[in-house]
Design a protein around this nucleic acid. Structure first.
Length: 113
DNA sequence: GCTCTGACGCCTA
DNA sequence: CTAGGCGCCAGAG
């Protein structure tokens, strides 16, 4: 038992739905799941998602478009390279045109509410 | 079983 | 404008 959809699994689902060349934020995903103030949980889920290749955690950044989690990608700009490889322009660990590449699940996806 | 930390976000002083 | 703290939930010591 205990196999019901956990909060983390929902995060993975949303992250996996992020299209190439787009990025999302922890708060946006958390809010989509109904835990607007649990953005930390999203980040934590990402940490675990790091072990899952099905979850492009590099597409998930903070609300500032800053690659806060790059530190977990091998300690280098691997996260930035992955995003740039998809067409996302990044400078100084910060996403350029963030609002253009920002993919909001609450807006792009239907609202579960 | 309690405490601290953690890839965040928002509020208040 | 900057600095600090609270909230949220879960895992590790």
């Amino acid at each position: 038992m205990s196999t019901e959809p956990n909060f983390f699994e929902r995060v993975y689902e949303v992250v996996k739905l992020i299209p190439s060349g787009r990025v999302s934020s922890y708060g946006a995903i958390a809010r989509y799941l109904g835990a607007a103030r649990s953005a930390r949980m999203v980040g934590w889920a990402m940490n675990k998602a790091h072990d899952l290749e099905d979850v492009p955690a590099q597409r998930v950044v903070n609300r500032l478009g800053l690659l806060t989690g790059k530190h977990h990608f091998g300690g280098t700009n691997a996260m930035q390279q992955l995003l740039e490889n998809e067409g996302v322009v990044i400078k100084n660990n910060q996403i350029q045109n963030f609002e253009k590449v920002f993919w909001d699940p609450n807006k792009e996806l239907e609202r579960p509410l």
